[in-house]
Design a protein around this nucleic acid. Structure first.
Length: 273
DNA sequence: AGGCAGGTTCTTA
DNA sequence: TAAGAACCTGCC
């Protein structure tokens, strides 16, 4: 099916923004995998995109996944070119990025894995984890089998050897414990969706292997709470160098997480500053 | 060959 | 409470 999107939708920027790890260029479009669903999406005109899914699938899932009901253009419009020129430039450069509505479980495991890894290594580990369970959900445009992201039960059911084969390193025990916590019911990710920001943060920090950075990534990308502001090494450098007197979090609430994405993407793409 | 990559935990003072 | 070391693995 075809859809039209008139502003703030750039597949390449989203793929490179660091929020998703199974969103890759494939042939003349992008292959997107989320939980047990996948989509091939291709830009076919200035505002036109072709998706290889039914209109029901689009309405029920992908429209929401791409966060197409939020007006990012208006949010960018809050940035004052004169008062914060660096953020303005970052937002102009990153125009087209959206915060995807991804699955909390998949994001939790993905960001636990992300610690002290670069993006290619994170992607490789996640693909190995999916392949270890091998739940075949289709084929991409280059003929590769696509595997669903494993459920908590499936990860809990992997042997130590299988888990070790995913290049998780010392993070394997974090991944294992998170799966066991969800399977046992000690951690209820769905219910956390209704919790207050503070309760959600405290719950996440209680997980083995989850600190403030991973927790904030989970809150922003897994729960789509757009005010979360994960501070990684890049963002910390930006804050240090460009905002010695502090970033104006009050001004951009409740969308600081979107500003974080612009700053992150801009600083990384330019080898920083 | 040694250092480092989107951090967190554990230990020590 | 805060600083420092240790941690898996892969890649330059």
């Amino acid at each position: 099916m075809k859809i039209e999107i008139f502003d703030d939708f750039d597949l390449k920027k989203i793929a490179d923004s660091g929020q998703c790890f199974r969103f890759n260029e494939c042939g003349d479009g992008y292959e997107v995998v989320s939980s047990a669903k996948h989509l091939f999406i291709k830009k076919t005109g200035e505002f036109e995109y072709e998706l290889d899914c039914s209109s029901d699938d689009y309405e029920d899932f992908w429209k929401n996944y791409f966060d197409l009901d939020l007006n990012y253009k208006d949010i960018r419009g809050r940035i004052d070119k004169d008062k914060d020129n660096y953020l303005y430039c970052a937002a102009e450069y990153g125009k087209g990025i959206r915060i995807l509505r991804q699955d909390p479980w998949e994001m939790l495991i993905s960001f636990i894995i992300s610690q002290r890894k670069n993006i290619p290594a994170i992607k490789a580990s996640i693909e190995k984890l999916c392949a270890a369970v091998s739940k075949d959900i289709g084929t991409d445009r280059e003929g590769n089998t696509i595997y669903a992201f494993p459920t908590p039960e499936e990860i809990a059911g992997l042997s130590d050897e299988q888990l070790a084969s995913c290049s998780l390193g010392y993070r394997d025990k974090y991944v294992r414990q998170a799966a066991l916590d969800v399977v046992s019911g000690a951690v209820k990710l769905d219910e956390w969706g209704n919790a207050s920001d503070e309760e959600l943060m405290n719950g996440l920090l209680g997980l083995f292997g989850v600190g403030t950075k991973v927790a904030n990534c989970e809150i922003l990308f897994g729960y789509h709470r757009l005010d979360a502001f994960p501070k990684d090494v890049w963002i910390n450098r930006v804050l240090e160098l460009k905002y010695p007197n502090g970033f104006n979090f009050e001004k951009y609430a409740p969308y600081n997480g979107i500003m974080q994405q612009y700053l992150f993407y801009y600083s990384r793409s330019n080898g920083l500053i």
